[in-house]
Design a binder for these strands. Sequence first.
DNA 1: AGAAAGTTGAGTAAAATACTCAGAATTGAG
DNA 2: CTCAATTCTGAGTATTTTACTCAACTTTCT
Lengths: 141, 141
Amino acid sequence: MKLSTKGRYGLRAVFEIGLKYGEEPVSIKTISENQGISENYLEQLFKNLRKEGIVKSTRGAKGGYELTKHPSLIKVSDVMNALEGSSKILECIDDGSCSREKYCPTRIIWLKVQKSIDDVMDTTTIQDIIDDYMKNNTGGK
Amino acid sequence: MKLSTKGRYGLRAVFEIGLKYGEEPVSIKTISENQGISENYLEQLFKNLRKEGIVKSTRGAKGGYELTKHPSLIKVSDVMNALEGSSKILECIDDGSCSREKYCPTRIIWLKVQKSIDDVMDTTTIQDIIDDYMKNNTGGK
DNA sequence: AGAAAGTTGAGTAAAATACTCAGAATTGAG
DNA sequence: CTCAATTCTGAGTATTTTACTCAACTTTCT
Ligand code: FES
Ligand code: FES
């Protein structure tokens, strides 16, 4: 059960944009340099982030990406859903999607695991990540 | 972030064996029939479960697999580790395994997610799964 | 006009997943 | 003792997913 680079890279990228929220658009080139992720790949990730309305773009010189909403309104789960399609650990989890559902002995476990993941991702926002980052890179000597 | 069939099938298989704990070994054939999993594939899964000491085997007629310990002593995480190699959602999680670790803005999120998953898998045992199954298939009408 | 961006769709290499298969080894039952 | 039941093992493979790359095009700023 591994988290793919889509999710990992994507969240770092969104964080990067969040840092400049309310200031200026951030270009793919900048993100690529700061986070060490290929420009080509970032393009793909942003295609999805844009489609899901998490970022908006400005073309042309001085263009780039910005968050559509305040960082405190964007949950980690939003980003994950946009990038990984869904943050479900398995298909069977949705009611009615599995023929064994009714008598499946292990279903309850996966539901619990899923819930615990959702709890974290739904209650953490980009702002939280930014705050945490600020604390660690200024507060402490 | 999907759970592979190794983990899903494997836990169902271990549950099946757990039902007969203290009674008789359960053959791959039986599990295959009850859980609808290919015999060939189950062999592969049991190769790992055995290596990690979760099950023990008896060859020959009337042979099969049994749990090495009481179901209440086998955690879901034990089974997952045996089957999926590790239940870590990413490599970076281990201290020192990632060069970005120190200033990585998203690391803390993944650590939280990991912890919440571990909490569930470490505190749920095969016995819990069995109990739950029994409740749902006898208690109710 | 020209450079700096984003936009899009297609394509691909590598890795992981999800199996299959054949045959050898072991054991219990008759 | 023999045979059928069963595990054991290593190798092989098809499919899917991941993780990208690339090229051409559009938009916008200066
Ligand atoms: S709910 Fe689908 S196999 Fe358990
Ligand atoms: S800790 Fe490795 S990229 Fe964040």
